[in-house]
Each structure stands twice: as C-alpha cells, then as structure tokens.
C-alpha cells in the first residue's frame, strides 16, 4: 500500500479510505457544481503523463488542493455537514504533500513539461468565479483519485 510516482515513493496512506471518504460525499458535492460545461482536470492535464513527470505533477496538484481548494472549501464542508470526509481527505493529502516535499530534487528534470500540465488546470480554475472553481475542484476529486490509483501498489 504505497504510491510510486515515478522516482517518488509515498507510504502511509490507505487509498481505500480516501475513496470511501469521497464516495460518501460525492453526490452532495457534485450537485453544487452547476457549471457542467467546464472540466478542470481534463484529459490534457492527466492523460498519458510519463512516469517521470508524475511526481512533479501530483506534487503541484496536491499542494494546490491543500493550500487553496481545501482551505476555501472549509466553510462549505461545515455547511454541508461533511467535515469528517473533508478531514480524511485534507489530512491524507497533507501527508502526501509533506512526503513529496522531501523528493523535490527528484522532480527537477521534468519540471517544465509537468508544469505546463498543471498550468492548464490552474488557468481553467482561475477563469471561473472563485467559489464555483473551488466547488468544482473539490467535486473532481474522483478524477484525481482515479489517476492516483494508477500509481498505487497494494
């Protein structure tokens, strides 16, 4: 039970728990996203990512989720009564980001191409109203977890 994002290894996260946490709130969260014509985590962001780039890309994405998405979604989590799932996801993403932090030097070579993918996501995020973008990003966590699952070894 560990992630192997190219050269970066992350232990200590039980992915099944994240799935259960998100699945418990998926319908509530996605029902709040009314801008169905926009997908932030599009195929261009996550499809055919070379292994070598996966570490930098996941680090950039999860750091964004920890520092921006979860922080801004906090009051909605209280409002919808989904603090428990919110806490499971936020704390485990926090663990992954902290552990990836230690592998910074392994990501350096693929920074540019991986960065371009993250900027596709970030630009789409910024084009939306802030609250709508945060709600959409939180609702697309199944797309993110599905991509992370490919790097997870039982």
């Amino acid at each position: 039970q560990e992630f192997q994002f190219g050269p970066c290894r992350v232990e200590g996260v039980v992915l099944q728990k994240l799935w259960q946490a998100f699945w418990a709130v998926k319908d509530i969260v996605q029902a709040q996203d009314n801008i169905t014509s926009v997908q932030l985590l599009r195929k261009e962001v996550l499809q055919n990512v070379p292994e070598t780039e996966s570490c930098h890309l996941i680090h950039a994405l999860l750091r964004f989720y920890v520092n921006t998405v979860f922080k801004s979604y906090r009051d909605k989590a209280v409002e919808f009564g989904i603090l428990k799932s919110f806490s499971i996801l936020a704390n485990n993403f926090f663990v992954i980001v902290s552990k990836l932090q230690a592998s910074q030097e392994k990501m350096f070579s693929t920074r540019k191409t991986a960065r371009r993918r993250f900027l596709l996501f970030h630009r789409a995020f910024k084009q939306l109203d802030r609250e709508a973008a945060v709600t959409k990003a939180f609702g697309e966590m199944d797309i993110l977890l599905s991509w992370m699952e490919k790097f997870y070894q039982l």
């Binding site: 979860f70 428990k84 806490s87 704390n91 993403f93 926090f94």
Partner: peptide
C-alpha cells in the same frame, strides 16, 4: 482536529463519530 485543521482552520473542531 487533524494536523490540517490545526494549521489551516484552527477554530474548527470535528465531533467524534
């Protein structure tokens, strides 16, 4: 409160299950 809550939302405590 997990580490995330105490760092980013220290006023929010979660009722135990």
């Amino acid at each position: 409160q997990g580490e995330y809550e105490s760092l980013y939302m220290s006023h929010i405590w979660i009722p135990s299950s």
